[in-house]
Every structure is written in C-alpha cells, then in structure tokens.
Design a binder for these strands. Sequence first.
DNA 1: CTTTCAAACCACTTTATGCCACTTTTATCC
DNA 2: GGATAAAAGTGGCATAAAGTGGTTTGAAAG
Lengths: 142, 142
Amino acid sequence: MLIGEYRHSIDTKNRVSLPAKFRKEMGKKVYITRGLDNCLSIYTEKSWKVILGKLENLSISKASERGFNRFMLSGATEVDVDGSGRILVPEYLKDFANVEKKVVWTGAGDRAEMWAEEVWDTYLTAKQEDPEAMAENLEGLI
Amino acid sequence: MLIGEYRHSIDTKNRVSLPAKFRKEMGKKVYITRGLDNCLSIYTEKSWKVILGKLENLSISKASERGFNRFMLSGATEVDVDGSGRILVPEYLKDFANVEKKVVWTGAGDRAEMWAEEVWDTYLTAKQEDPEAMAENLEGLI
DNA sequence: CTTTCAAACCACTTTATGCCACTTTTATCC
DNA sequence: GGATAAAAGTGGCATAAAGTGGTTTGAAAG
C-alpha cells in the first residue's frame, strides 16, 4: 500500500528518486503514464496489469472511453529503477505535468502519483479550503 | 479505548512521545493522517484497516471523491514507534496541524488525535463557552 | 566514424534512525 | 508523609541510509 507525501528533485538528466518507502513495493520496474488533474501516475508491474485489464473492457465505439484509453496508453512507458532507486522521466511526461525541478510524490494506494510541487500545493489547498466536501466524505468514514 | 488528554513536546527532529497510556493499545506501528479542524489523527493498525476498507468504495471518476481519497492517502504515513515510545511526525503533517513545539494528545476512542497546543486550547475554549452551538456544528462535521 | 543519449557507477552531502544518558514525574513502600 | 525506586519524557550523539550530483562507459542512431 503506497501512502504518504514526499518531496524530491529532478536532476538535469530527468532522474528522480523514488521515496525510500515506496521502493520495496515498486520493485525494479514501474509504469509511468498521464494521470488525472495534471499529475503523473506510477504503477507497479502488478497494478499496471490490473489497469490494462480494465482498459480492455472499455468500449472502442464510445468516444469518451476511446479517448481515455488513448490518454492512458499513449502516455505510458515502462521504466527501470536504477541502482540508486531513481527513475528516468520522459521529457513529454515532464511537460505534461509541468514539472521543472521540485516534485511531490504521493501515495495513492495501488499506485503513486508525481506532481509538480506548485501544482500539488495548489490542488491540496483547494481541497482543504472546501471543508464541506471533505466533511461529507468523512461522515461515512469516521 | 483511547481516552484522556496529554501534553508533550516535539523535539528538533520531529519526534514526539506517545502518551504512556496509549502505548499498549497502539503497539509498534501506527498510521497518522490529516484530521478535521487541523488536528492529526493517529490510528492503530487495526483501526486503519477499517478506514482503508471504507476508502475503497469511493469512485475514482468523481472529482470530489478522488480528491478525498488523495487527501486521506497522501496525508497518511505508516510510522514505527521507537524504543523510547516515540514517533516521527513528517514535516508536511506538522505544517498541516500548525505544530511548533507543544502538542496535545487526545484520546478519541479507536484513534488518537494530536493538536498544536494553541489550536487545541482555542478549540476547547470555544467549545466550553458555547457547548450547544458547538455540538450542533460538530454533528454536521463528524 | 562520429555524435548523442541513457544506463551504470561512483562520490559527496544531507537526513533519518537507533541508541544512550540525563531529568522529571509518578508510583511504592516503609 | 517522606524516602526510594521505577517509569516516562526529552535531548544529544553516532551510525546508517537516503538523496543528489557528476563522470564514465556502452549502445544506438545518424
């Protein structure tokens, strides 16, 4: 289970460290693709297979589902984790997520997400400033 | 059952002691996440699993539920209790709860809460001065 | 044959973690 | 009630691990 928030830097060669707490679960090979809300989604090999299975069930005749399928698959890359626990982020995904230097890793259960720092801070602030919506969800929870 | 109020300090390395009376129930591994009203919620391994089960029912396609899922999972951290009965509070959770030096632990049944001292005192004072309204408001929140 | 890019390797800096020691509080026993 | 012992709380240090930058090597493309 991937949880937590970790702040890292991307170096000049587009390498970024996986949070140490993610390494064991992520193994030596991960799949990175476009995520919702301008983040990048990073899947473990196992959870990637699950996603692929779900995508196969989407209808090719429905424009929206076809689009989502393309969104996920066209952006996806298999990347290896290097000896220092880093991955290489393709340029086009960096651009997609507006990543410059500082990134935020967030655990999202079966996958991790990677955000440009400013994008994440903005997103989170917006969520926190809408306590009603938060509370609605919490109601069933606690 | 976690009950009571205890005041502790966070040291320069973001470590804080669990109240001695909480230790037995909390074991050696706990989960911290963002709570309501700017406190932090600390779950035992057992009660955390209950929370996870409820989160699984949220839909990923709805923006508000997706956001809530992120809020909970990204905010959560698994932390080990050290040999002196302390846990390490991640910087971002310290920031979230406005914790500086003094914190207040409160028992809340299946979970504990941790507050910045000033936040707790303010909250408690308000509650004592207007218990009726507070109760009404809380009803909608929790 | 040259150039480019990525992967592996290496080295340095910073941060986290475990351990120990001191102080304060709480409990116990006479 | 006071003395003593035990536990809790806190701080500091030493070691290990994580994070990051650079250099070299190797492979692929032009």
